[in-house]
Design a protein around this nucleic acid. Sequence first.
DNA 1: CGACTTTGACCCGCGC
DNA 2: GCGCGGGTCAAAGTCG
Length: 338
Amino acid sequence: MKSTLVTTPTLHPPPMDLNSVVVDTSLDLSINSFRHHENHCKGEIDFGDNYDRDEGRTERPSAAKQEGTTVPLEELNRIKSENKKLTEMLFTMYGDLRSQMMDMKSSGNGSTTRKRKYEDYEWHNVIRICESSANSDEEVYRRAQESTRTKVSRVYVRIDPSDMSLNVKDGYHWRKYGQKVTRDNPSPRAYFKCSFAPNCPVKKKVQRSVDDPSVLVATYEGEHNHHCPTQPKIVSPGCSSTSQGYPKPVFVLPNSPSTPVMRSPTPNVVLDLVQQPGLPNPAAKQHVRESDNEETFSTEDNNLPQLWVQQMASSLTRDPNFTAALAAAVSGRIFETW
DNA sequence: CGACTTTGACCCGCGC
DNA sequence: GCGCGGGTCAAAGTCG
């Protein structure tokens, strides 16, 4: 089967109202992600002076951007304050939309209620994480990560439309234990259990997308209790650098917020770092390509011999485990700054 | 022969 | 309480 992974879509296609929003809990749960969800749900809003609509992020100060200097503490606090406001605004909007959704449900028929139950559960999960006494963005992220490890995650795999199989090659061994035709989708849903380890609790459901039959939707539940048996061709839950649990959210600052759904088949991690005060300046930008070993690292630290740095980077970046670990670590660092 | 897939039956939670 | 629908079981079939 020829399959390419469409990694971590921000929204389920096509753009939709909150009723049909499916939140992939393996996704970027940062404020940027929420901005995307929110933007699609409610249209244009003012994200503040520093929000770059084209880049989908809040620009860091131009001085720091150009010179690679540290972000002033007051600027960092200002950004944090802005993000807090945005978070509050988003939750307010979510509340409004949810009320509307409830109204629609109560006035609609019963089948709609049942049909939307699961999607609503997933979406609500993420929101509940944030609503439940999370005092800071770090707390939100920590809770989101915990939730992600114990609940569900989705990947979208584009396949040949003529390919009728429900195989998602993610590096693990799966035993199929059932298949059902569900009510809301004419395509059958296949049920798999991880068969690599005897007691691995992870289950997987695979079904063609009702909107796009050329896309397989694989839903993973649980946490692998063993290492990844093979280097996966795609990012798979459980195949993180830690080899256990779900992968840390892949942080993507898309070039175009208007097309957040399907990314390229090549899983890229593009990190645009806001430097922390007091930290050395390892790189203004780091681009990590997980798929083709073409990772590039730039460093502006003149205290290290450039050649040595290049050799070390070249050596390390050939190791896919290292790149995955690096992406995860840097992703974590990003959230410490929020 | 073992591993894996298929498929009908069964279980159970949820909504009415 | 009943029916519906998703999820799981397990026996039979298939394949290498």
